[in-house]
């Protein structure tokens, strides 16, 4: 099963739960932080809506 590795959002009230939530100030920061996290975690970034991106871990060993 895929796992949410991190949530990056500008709207802090919309995300809660087990994955690390990274709160950013604006959409520019959202882009740059997600980009960095995608490369660092090797997890694909998926856009939920314009203010929230989740990083999804699909590595075999985590299944």
């Amino acid at each position: 099963m895929a796992r949410i590795a991190a949530i990056v959002t500008t709207r802090k009230d919309e995300a809660a739960g087990g994955a690390p939530i990274i709160h950013v100030a604006d959409r520019e920061r959202l882009k740059s932080v997600s980009n960095l996290l995608e490369k660092a975690l090797d997890c694909a970034a998926h856009q939920i809506h314009e203010d929230m991106i989740i990083l999804v871990d699909r590595h075999q060993k985590n299944r």
């Binding site: 882009k31 997600s34 980009n35 995608e38 970034a45 998926h46 856009q47 991106i53």
Partner: peptide, 8 residues
């Protein structure tokens, strides 16, 4: 699929 990053 859903691609989150503009660059990709």
């Amino acid at each position: 699929m859903n691609v989150g990053l503009e660059a990709n």
